[in-house]
Amino acid sequence: MKVLVAVKRVIDYNVKVRVKPDNTGVDLANVKMAMNPFCEIAVEEAVRLKEKGVASEIVVVSIGPKASQEQIRTALALGADRGIHIETDEEVQSLEAAKLLKAVVEKEEPKLVILGKQSIDSDNNQTGQMLAALTGMGQGTFASEVVVDGDKVKVTREVDGGLMTVALNLPAVVTTDLRLNEPRYASLPNIMKAKKKPLDSMSPADLGVEIAPRLTTLKVEAPAARQAGIKVADVAELVDKLKNEAKVI
């Protein structure tokens, strides 16, 4: 079966983000970019499915500027077979991303689509669910285990207070949580081979999707610094404050 994995280019998780002095956004000039960590987990899961003989082909898709091809190449080096790049320099919000991916799904007809549960830049946690809605597929979000069983996929989900397992008809959408797997390293020979794997590039217009953002970011600010509170004299006063002032115990 064919597996489609969507990956996003984001600021590297090691880089401390810095809000631009004019509050228009976060400074991305010359900072290290990388594949969104949840997307790495998605790629890894697809590769493991292929290694188990469950998946036959892994197609990786990314939406974004030209440089997003680096992340597609990384996914190819990790074991994906083929790449699709939807090139645009415009801001793509979740709903449009889902519409673009829907168009890819209609073309590629994968049995399983795996995405990260959220990207570490916009922290939206929306695209997978929206894609599932638009394509009429079931969704297994925040997955910590994925087992394909005949024409169904069983997904164990990380939910508040524990785990919940659902069975979804295939084709289905799965979004990954952190504990699903530990992504592998790309080896040098695989990075070299990845350069030769096929990568198709297209525009949103090619897919018949118009980019028309519904949300406008008015400003981006650095979080307010915490202020020092008070010093308490002893433990009794501390407990009293926690109970009667802060009301947290």
Binding site: Q93, S94, L95, A98, D123, N124, N125, Q126, T127, G128, Q129, M130, L131, A132, A133, L134, Q139, T141, F142, R157, E158, V159, D160, P213, R214, L215
Partner: peptide, 23 residues
Amino acid sequence: AGTTGKDIMPRVAALLDVAQVSD
């Protein structure tokens, strides 16, 4: 924005063809 809300709401937004504002 618990796990149930995060699971359901983007699907609602997509069905209504509107954006979602998260968290």
